[in-house]
Amino acid sequence: MATLARKDAPAVAAEPCQYLTFTLGGEMYAVETLSVKEIIEYGQVTTVPMMPPSIRGVINLRGAVVPVIDLKARFGGQPTEVTRRTCIVIIEMGGSDECQVLGILVDTVSEVLEIPPGEVEAPPAFGARIRADFIRGMGKVGGGFVILLNVEAVLSTDELSVLDELSRQGTPVDAGALPRLGSSVPG
């Protein structure tokens, strides 16, 4: 149904208003359906050592190795607990010169919602639980708000790889415990 609507109205591509909603730690978030490639069940994530907790690991997506980002850890919380309903949403970014495919770990995937641009409020200056630049806007849905994520900022490759750099610099001399830098995101 969602894809059908998209094909019928190419003008939508210029002003996307379809969002995939999902929950994360009880909170409702949404990403544009245009950047969503597919949704897969959680399974067989290979942990990459010496990485901050926001980078959960890598999966084999039909022959391609795709990194999986733990959104809850990225937002400064604890690593996501895997349950029966945990999913990986595969996101495609860039597109113009270099296309990047990443997976994000979410608690549950809810539904595809149509939110017209008029129903999207500017992000609050403060008060949200996550960094302001991660929020593209607040979608009004049935009297409540859904946080529309700015995927480019949340999954910024530069920032994620710098996180990894930071984690290395912070590595204590005695071997063993890795620093948990997920909560002290720069910027």
């Binding site: 290979t46 050592p49 980078i55 890598v58 084999n60 990443l102 490759t157 710098v162 990894d164």
Partner: peptide, 26 residues
């Protein structure tokens, strides 16, 4: 298999591969 830009600063790991079981090995 390349690990992608997210891991561009990683040390100790040179890349990844896919095992017969479909699992990713580093």
């Amino acid at each position: 298999k390349p690990l992608g830009k997210v891991f561009s600063h990683i040390r100790c790991i040179g890349g990844s591969t896919i095992l017969g079981s479909g699992e990713v090995a580093l």
